[in-house]
């Protein structure tokens, strides 16, 4: 049983990690020395932060990596207290069969400032026995004291040719029949996110026919958060309450995040502009509003309220 392809084809060793060559080179030195400082991996989704952290830990900790490795997801754990107790209990014990223990904390930028300060203390207390690997999307959301305690590695979106290589490799492994152009299309939509690329590949492979450009387009349109376009049309037609209800349904029920909603709205709106459903000035005004909404959500506002406010901007367009 190997799970979805994103998991099945997750590289297990450092040299198999796709892209990020400079970073991997430097990390290999830590493996050689059997020691490492606290690390921080920052970068967008699907570029290999978690994979690298897992591979690095396995090579440093060797045979006993399971006993000496703790993975915590900062955004899911119920508050800093759980994180701290987990870390404390883990760090209190001496490393067994390995030079030190490794704690991998994912999505640290979703921790509150207070929690981060608490975490800083933990990082100081256990320097002798443990090293931390932190990962986050935006290092700007991490407090300075933590940043200064870490060697920071900035992961970049995976390059097109590297994604192609990986996808072709998987396709071969799975015995898929594909058009080369289809792979190019996947790379275009993946935007440097290898996880997304592999998800698209497996989704199009699931039909069991030859993978073509068309089938990729179909997957892309089916995998979109549903009803977003419908919501935009409703708002443009002046039905604010209807659009708002739809928005709430998408966010509450489907659980779509604010960030994903903004992305989807942006994509839909820009497509509408290229297809002449929106005139230039209206398009610009809406984009301005989307940009502001995006910013406010990142500033810590409530995504749903912000998106409801964004919908009112479409409403105005319906009149002009």
């Amino acid at each position: 049983m190997s799970g979805p392809w994103v998991e099945k084809y997750r590289p297990a060793t450092l040299e198999d990690v796709v892209g990020q060559d400079h970073i991997i080179e430097r990390l290999k030195a830590y493996v050689k020395d059997e020691s490492m400082p606290n690390l921080m991996f920052t970068g967008p989704a699907g570029v290999g932060k978690t994979t690298t952290a897992l591979a690095l830990s396995k090579s440093i900790l060797g045979e006993y990596w399971r006993q000496n490795f703790l993975e915590l997801n900062a955004s899911d754990a119920r508050g800093i207290d759980t994180v701290r107790t987990n870390i404390k209990n883990f760090c209190r014990l001496k490393p067994v069969g390995a030079p030190f223990r490794i704690i991998f904390l994912d999505e640290v930028d979703n921790m509150t400032k207070d929690a981060q300060h608490a975490l800083r203390r933990e990082m100081e207390m256990y320097t002798k026995t443990s090293s931390f690997i932190l990962s986050c999307n935006y290092s700007s959301k991490i407090i300075d004291p933590i940043q200064s305690r870490c060697a920071i590695f900035r992961f970049t979106p995976v390059k097109g040719h590297q994604i192609i290589k990986r996808l072709e490799y998987i396709a071969q492994e799975e015995g898929l029949d594909y058009d080369p152009a289809a792979i190019e299309t996947m790379v275009y939509f993946a935007e440097g996110d290898l996880r997304k690329a592999i998800n698209i590949l497996q989704s199009s492979a699931s039909v069991g026919e030859k993978i073509t450009e068309d089938s990729i387009y179909q997957v892309i349109s089916k995998a979109r958060p549903k009803d977003v376009k419908k919501m935009i049309i409703k708002a443009l037609n002046g039905d604010f309450m209807g659009a708002r209800d739809l928005l709430r349904e998408i966010m509450v029920l489907q659980g779509t995040s604010g960030e994903d909603m903004v992305n989807q709205i942006y994509q839909d709106v820009s497509r509408m502009a290229t297809e002449d459903e929106l005139d230039g000035p209206s398009y610009l005004e809406i984009i301005e509003a989307i940009a502001e909404t995006d910013f406010r959500i990142r500033e810590g506002a409530n995504p749903r309220i912000q998106l409801e406010a964004l919908l009112t901007r479409f409403l105005y367009k319906a009149r002009t």
Binding site: G3, E7, T50, S75, E107, S257
Partner: peptide, 8 residues
């Protein structure tokens, strides 16, 4: 199983 957060 997949080393991701609930949101992802």
């Amino acid at each position: 199983k997949m080393h991701i957060s609930r949101q992802v």
